[in-house]
């Protein structure tokens, strides 16, 4: 308190002096009031700044987030926890995103020989739930993403339709077209015998997206959200035509086969 009152008095004295310089006689009371007012103003500014900061800064460049996306039960949370602590907890469908700063590459440098040159620690990783009801918050995260790992359940053929639809939405979203975050399609559960090979998954996804392209180009009249056109007119869709780089790999979190994902991260966080 002493310090505070000291500063107040000195400030008040300064204001008094300034007033006398200009030629206006200023009493101690008025100067104190002026100082108080100034303090209040600065406080207000700080509060409003804090508020605007909380709402999130809009950056035009790519962020530093590693976004783990995918459908329900694909293995996103498992991958998240594997990257985080190297174990594989039992999970149920997530109700909210899991976010943490993770030292992925430092930890796995030893066993992943292909990680190529010094590890980058402290990646912000976000595991976003796959349930469609939560999909409206997804693109907010996509805007901050440096790269995306899209986890696919390779044993579930029926889910591929939803995967294709989600990918279509990602590819046509303005954020993707502007920021072009590299995307890795990780076909999880490759340890299961019925799991499909990445090539087959790729074919299926391309076919589904082609069909979507047909139906979506026939938008209803007056549709306000003008989707970006995907691919090249007159050619069937291939994943190479996507606005961002798309890679495929196989993965099994259960069997700890995530080298390709780690390599992908190493490439992107160099």
């Amino acid at each position: 308190m002493d310090v505070l009152s000291d500063t107040f008095t000195t400030l008040a004295a300064a204001v008094e002096a300034a007033g006398s310089q200009v030629g206006v006689p200023i009493t101690a009371e008025i100067s104190l009031a002026v100082v108080l007012l100034a303090v209040l103003c600065t406080l207000l500014v700080i509060v409003s700044l804090a508020r605007s900061l909380r709402k999130g800064t809009r950056r035009l460049s790519r962020g530093d987030l590693l976004l783990i996306a995918g459908q329900c039960d694909a293995g996103k949370t498992a991958l998240f926890h594997y990257l985080r602590s190297g174990d594989f907890p039992e999970t149920v469908s997530s109700l909210k995103p899991n976010t943490d700063i993770i030292n992925v590459l430092h930890k796995d440098e030893g066993d992943a020989s292909s990680s190529g040159g010094g590890g980058v620690g402290g990646i912000e990783v976000c595991d976003y739930p796959g349930h469609q009801r939560l999909s409206h918050g997804f693109f907010g995260h996509l805007k901050r993403a440096r790269c995306v790992v899209y986890v696919i359940d390779a044993t579930d053929k029926a889910a591929l339709k939803n995967v294709a639809e989600h990918l279509y939405e990602i590819f046509t979203h303005p954020a993707t077209n502007k920021l072009r975050p590299p995307l890795l399609l990780a076909c999880n559960k490759s340890d299961v015998p019925t799991a499909r090979k990445p090539d087959m998954v790729k074919d299926d996804i391309e076919r589904e997206i082609e069909r979507l392209r047909q139906s979506r180009s026939a938008t209803l009249e007056g549709q306000d959200e003008a989707d970006n056109y995907l691919g090249v007119d007159g050619e069937t869709f291939k994943l190479d035509m996507a606005p961002c780089r798309v890679d495929m790999c196989r993965m099994s979190v259960k069997k700890a086969e995530v080298q390709d994902v780690i390599k992908f991260l190493a490439d992107n966080y160099r």
């Binding site: 939560l134 409206h136 339709k161 979507l212 139906s215």
Partner: peptide, 22 residues
Amino acid sequence: TEAVQRILTPKKSVDVLRAALE
């Protein structure tokens, strides 16, 4: 707001044309 948004966000494809084409 989030709750309403979540309710109204479809949990499955609403693309009739796509289903018909399929």
